[in-house]
Each structure stands twice: as C-alpha cells, then as structure tokens.
Computed example of a mutant assay.
Amino acid sequence: MIGRLPLDEQLGALREVLSRNDVLVEVLARAATLDLPRWYLTAGCLFQTVWNVVTGRPPTHGIKDYDVFYFDDGDLSWEAEDRAIQAGREVFADLPAEVEIRNEARVHLWYEEKFGVPCPPYASTEAAIDSFAATTCCLGVRLERDGRWRVYAPHGLSDVFNLVVRPNPVLAPRAVYEAKAARWREQWPELSVLEWPGSSGVVAGPGD
C-alpha cells in the first residue's frame, strides 16, 4: 500500500496520482502564471483525486471546485482580493471546473460570521492549511518557476492514501468536521472517519 511507503516514495506517488487529474494539472499550470504570493492549490481537489484513483473512480469524481489560496497581508481590502479573483476567472474561464481564489490573510475578517467561532489572523498560507477541519485535508501543492512541485503536507500523506479522515480540532467546530465527513462518505463510502475527540472514539468505516 502506498500509505505504508517511506515519505519520499509517497511524494513521488502523490505526483503520479494527481497527474491523472488533467483538470488539476491545468489549474496548477495556469495558477502559476498569476504571480499570486505564496500560493497553493489545496483542499478537496487534492485528497479527493487521491481517493478517486485509489478506489478506481474517475480522477475528477465528486470534486466540486479547485481552491487556490494565496497570502497577501499588504492589502486586506476586498477590492484587492477581488482583482485576483477576476484575473483568475479570465485565466481559468475555459476549464470544466470552478476555481476559487482566496487571500488567506483576510480570513479572520469573515470567518466568525460564517462558522460561529473567531479565527486569529493567519501568518501564512501554510498556517491556513494547518487549520482545516480534518488533518487529511491539510495538503497544498504549487508549481514552482522551475517546474518543480512544492508539496506542503504537515501531517504526512499516509491518511490520504489509506482513506482515513482524521479530525483536526484547532479551529473549525465539531459540526463542520462532521458535516464534511458525512458529505465525503456519501461520495466515497470506503472512507474510515475518525470520531471527534471526546466522543465515542469509534471509527466509522465502510459499511457502517
């Protein structure tokens, strides 16, 4: 199993697997032309592509959008973020997918209103990725100028390849994690979903 390989071999496997998603590869290439500061393609489009390949589904199955995060704390106005969003709409216009661009330096300005808990200002794009509701989601990839893939995976890749969804109780509330996990298991019933800390501790796995 890929999830039991040494990390360097898992990184090679990650690139090979993600490269099967033609839309993802094209988003990476086009995002690199936008010159967004400290950007990553992140979240569902990455780990869901892995889930699809591991379970024999089409690489784009169940992926609702492609999230591009960047970090610019020099201008926290909505107008500056919107300029990046509009530039992205032009670059990604002909792709058969929705690409969402967000400045993670601004998240603290709207997070509490949307999710009901305050969010301290992030210090980097990586810090934003660190706060996803599940550690399995904490993954980012970008294409460097020399063509190399830069991968940020603070919790490693084993859970991603092993179809394990593990809670990350650092910011998002339990309800957000459980709602996401339930939605994912509808699309990928093979997932093993670990319970939120302090609950029963039972693993919800395939067939449960």
Score class of each variant (00 low, 15 high):
Arg20Cys: 07
Leu18Asp: 01
Ala31His: 03
Gly74Cys: 04
Gln187Asp: 13
His108Val: 05
Glu178Ile: 06
Glu113Thr: 07
Arg142Gln: 03
Cys45Val: 10
Gly207Pro: 05
Val203Tyr: 08
Leu18Ile: 09
Ala13His: 14
Cys138Trp: 03
Arg174Ser: 07
Val25Tyr: 14
Arg89Glu: 15
Ala87Glu: 03
Pro6Glu: 06
Cys137Trp: 03
Asp130His: 15
Asp159Cys: 00
Asp208Ala: 13
Val170Ile: 12
Trp51Phe: 14
Tyr66Ser: 07
Gly116Glu: 06
Gly44Glu: 08
Lys64Tyr: 11
Cys119Val: 00
Asp130Gly: 12
Val141Gly: 10
Ala128Met: 01
Gly116Ile: 04
Val202Ala: 15
Ala97Arg: 07
Pro169Val: 09
Asp72Asn: 15
Glu190Leu: 02
Arg89Leu: 11
Ala123Ile: 10
Gly62Ala: 14
Leu143His: 02
Leu24Lys: 12
Arg106Asp: 05
Tyr122Pro: 00
Pro37Ser: 11
Leu46Phe: 06
Leu143Trp: 01
Leu171Ser: 06
Arg106Val: 04
Gln187Lys: 15
Val117Pro: 03
Ala87Asn: 01
Cys119Lys: 02
Gly74His: 04
Asp35Leu: 09
Gly201Ala: 06
Asp35Ala: 13
Ala32Leu: 05
Arg4Tyr: 12
Gln10Ala: 00
Asn162Tyr: 02
Val68Glu: 07
Asp22Trp: 12
Thr55Tyr: 13
Ala84Cys: 10
Glu112Leu: 00
Ser19Phe: 06
Gly116Asp: 08
Arg183Glu: 12
Val203Phe: 04
Pro189Thr: 11
Leu36Glu: 03
His155Pro: 02
Leu24Gln: 12
Val50Gly: 02
Arg185Lys: 12
Glu126Gly: 04
Glu190Asp: 05
Glu186Gln: 14
Val23Gln: 12
Ala182Val: 07
Glu98Ser: 15
Tyr40Phe: 15
Trp196Cys: 12
Gly116His: 07
Lys64Thr: 13
Asp35Glu: 14
Leu157Thr: 00
Trp196Glu: 12
Trp110Glu: 04
Ala32Ser: 15
Val164Phe: 04
Cys138Ala: 14
Ala13Phe: 12
Leu46Cys: 07
Val91His: 02
Ala204Gly: 14
Val99Asn: 07
Val50His: 02
Phe92Pro: 02
Pro96Phe: 10
Leu191Pro: 03
Glu104His: 11
Val141Gln: 10
Ala179His: 09
Phe69Cys: 04
Gly44Leu: 03
Trp196His: 13
Trp149Asn: 05
Pro197Arg: 10
Ser124Tyr: 09
Glu81Pro: 03
Ala179Gly: 10
Glu81Leu: 05
Gly205Ala: 14
Ser19Leu: 08
Thr49Asp: 11
Pro58Ile: 08
Pro197Gly: 08
Trp78Ala: 11
Val117His: 08
Gly3Lys: 05
Gly88His: 06
Ala172His: 15
Asn103Val: 00
Asp65Tyr: 06
